[in-house]
Structure formats: structure tokens, C-alpha cells
């Protein structure tokens, strides 16, 4: 599903959570929405999922406005910490309503996911552990097979094996049933391999919207003798440095052309990719 966000503004009283955001997503990819705490991620997604109305600007999905538009919203699901779709009784109650309200619901898939996450149908969701509640949200989110599926920090409380099972399930289901999936998460390194495009926002504004490969290619760790590393990186934006004896490794941000790559090799320097998390820290202004 194509998503067009145009000059989007969302205010809570005097607080502006989303401040003139504009971007477009072509759809049918797995997108990552990254941002620091309070950056406006949940607010943006809430407007996308018709959980709330925008203060100004517009959000269109497949060219249509979203808020109170049943033709669009029936194809959207957002799973988040609030547990709207699951905290209505037992796990099987959540499934009972999901299969009734979701046009593309896959009951067999839901049961297989519940088995995978070891969720008991008769268990009351509000009495489950935080991780199990999140897993229940994942079950509803994936088995709904909504053309626009949004997971907002949906892994909270899940242990590492469960999170990995979640990521595997997303990828496997996406391969079988391609659709637009938006993942909002703080655990950037864990999800970065899933993402085809990344949208980073900060203080309610767009910082970058790139294909993941392109974004990652902007960051490089330059490693070698300290004096040569310093000389090579002098014109770049430096994200951080580490030094062990005479060897130094400096993380830089910016495009490297063919000449610069050749110069690095000739100088005996190694160019290595850096983690998306390091890029994210840089792009969102470093530690606060």
C-alpha cells in the first residue's frame, strides 16, 4: 500500500509531536521507522493507523485519507504496547474477535504462531507476562494479514529467542504474503537486516529516508595506522574513533567516491561497513 505523508503535524496541547513531516513509501516492502524516545514515532503511526486524527497536513494510503475511512482502515493493523487487540479477555477471545473483524484472517497460521510462542488459548492476556502479551499481539498482527501491517515496539518484554522467532516469522510470512510492513523499534541492530528502507525521525521531523543499503553505504569505519587514518578522514564527518596502540579506527559519515576508496587502499587503510545503530546515533544528534 502506498503511503503519502504531507506536511503532517500532530499536537498534544502545547506539545508538537510531529512537526511538518513529509515522505512517501511506495509500499510492499518492510520499512523501519527509527527514532529516539519522544521522537514522534508512535504519534506518526497512530495517525497512519487512524488511531487519531492529524492536527494539520495529510496522510493518504493508496491515495485516500485514512481517518474514519473504512475502505482504507480495514486494510491496516497496528500492534503496539497498548494491547488494544488482545487485552479483552483470554487469548482465544482475542482470536475470536480478530477472525470476525479481519477480512484476511488466517486461523491456522494464528494457531501455529500461538504454539510457537507457547501461548495458552485459555490464558487471560492481562495476566500473561509482558513478553507473552507482546507475543499475543504479534500473533494477531501477523495472522490478520493486513496489507498495511504496523508493529510499534511490539517486542517489549519478549526474551531474545522469542524476539528472533518474531523476526523470523515476519520475514517468512512477508515472503509468502508480500505486503507493506512497518517496524518501529529501538533494537535497531536486531531488526536492521529485515529492513528494505529506513525512515528516521527526530523531534517530529524527518531526518532521513533511504534504502537500507544506501544508508549503510554512507557510513564507514576507516582502520589503519593512526596518522594515515587522520589524514584520510580529515574532510569527513567523524562519528567516533577508537585506538589501540598505533592502530586507529575512525567511523565516518558521507559518500565515498571511487577515487577516495582507491586512495584508502593505496594508503593501506581498511574500509568496513558500520552498524546502523552507530549511524542512527549520529543522525539523531549523538548522546543527549
Amino acid at each position: 500500500m502506498r503511503i503519502d505523508v504531507e506536511n503532517l503535524v500532530l499536537r498534544y496541547g502545547d506539545t508538537t509531536a510531529v512537526d511538518g513531516l513529509t515522505f512517501n513509501l511506495a509500499g510492499d516492502k518492510i520499512y523501519g521507522l527509527l527514532g529516539r524516545s519522544g521522537s514522534g514515532k508512535t504519534s506518526l503511526l497512530s495517525v497512519l493507523a487512524a488511531f487519531r486524527r492529524e492536527s494539520a497536513g495529510s496522510v493518504r494510503v493508496n491515495g485516500q485519507p485514512v481517518f474514519e475511512n473504512a475502505d482504507v482502515t480495514r486494510d491496516i493493523i497496528m500492534i503496539r504496547d497498548g494491547g488494544e487487540t488482545v487485552k479483552i479477555g483470554t487469548a482465544e477471545d482475542a482470536v475470536y474477535f480478530a477472525e470476525w473483524l479481519r477480512p484476511n484472517w488466517d486461523g491456522d497460521y494464528a494457531r501455529s504462531l500461538m504454539d510457537r510462542f507457547e501461548l495458552r488459548p485459555k490464558a487471560k492476556v492481562s495476566e500473561m507476562s509482558k513478553g507473552q502479551q507482546s507475543a499475543m499481539g504479534v500473533v494477531i498482527g501477523l495472522a490478520s494479514r493486513a496489507p498495511l501491517t504496523i508493529f510499534d515496539e511490539s517486542y517489549l518484554g519478549m526474551d531474545v529467542p522469542s524476539r528472533y522467532a518474531f523476526y523470523e516469522a515476519i520475514l517468512a510470512d512477508y515472503m509468502l504474503h508480500p505486503r507493506t510492513i512497518i517496524l518501529s523499534a529501538h533494537l535497531i541492530e536486531e531488526i536492521s537486516s529485515l529492513l528494505e528502507e529506513v525512515v528516521i525521525i527526530d523531534r517530529g521531523r524527518l531526518v532521513v529516508h533511504e534504502e537500507t543499503e544506501t544508508l549503510l553505504s554512507r557510513g564507514r569505519a576507516v582502520t589503519g595506522p593512526a596518522d594515515r587514518v587522520d589524514a584520510f578522514t580529515s574532510g569527513f564527518t567523524v562519528l567516533g574513533t577508537r585506538q589501540l596502540g598505533p592502530t586507529k579506527s575512525t567511523m565516518v559519515y558521507g559518500d565515498l567516491d571511487q577515487d577516495q576508496r582507491r586512495q584508502a587502499v593505496e594508503a593501506g587503510l581498511e574500509l568496513e561497513p558500520i552498524a546502523m545503530q552507530d549511524l542512527f546515533v549520529h543522525l539523531t544528534g549523538g548522546p543527549r
Binding site: F51, I88, L101
Partner: peptide
């Protein structure tokens, strides 16, 4: 408090 949020999260309108 329970069913309105569930409806909206499942893509139903407030009107419905």
C-alpha cells in the same frame, strides 16, 4: 473502554 479501542485497532471506524 475495551471494545472501542479493539474495533479501531482492527481497522473498524468509530462510526461502525
Amino acid at each position: 473502554t475495551t471494545f472501542l479501542p479493539m474495533y479501531v485497532a482492527h481497522g473498524q471506524t468509530r462510526r461502525r
